[in-house]
């Protein structure tokens, strides 16, 4: 039973789980980390949802939700383009 361990690649230093993160091209932007396109889309979606939730909770009684959508979309474009 122990022999199979000898065959497996040694990954003690770098946990393999994070070594497989898809190796796409990343580039620096105004975001604090280097990101690829997928990351930036993901961040945009996360921000989109967060802005809408907070808007509904605190601001919607004054300003309609459409504004949140507009702001989120603008932010998304900024993030995807320059982030």
């Amino acid at each position: 039973m122990d022999t199979i361990m000898d065959n497996t690649p040694q990954t003690e230093e770098t946990p393999a789980e994070f070594a497989v993160a898809p190796p796409h091209k990343t580039r620096p932007g105004f975001l604090p980390i280097d990101t690829n396109t997928f990351d930036r889309c993901f961040i945009s979606v996360v921000c989109f949802v967060a802005i809408h939730l907070l808007w509904m909770r605190f601001i919607e009684s004054f300003i309609p939700l459409v504004m949140a959508t507009v702001i989120s979309l603008v932010l998304a474009v900024i993030i995807v383009r320059w982030g």
């Binding site: 770098t14 994070f18 993160a21 980390i33 993901f42 996360v46 949802v49 967060a50 939730l53």
Partner: peptide, 22 residues
Amino acid sequence: LLTLYFTIVFCWLLFVAISTSQ
């Protein structure tokens, strides 16, 4: 879905911390 959202965001932030530290 919102539970899923919070979990994913939380884990993703940790994940970023891990890859940066690596």
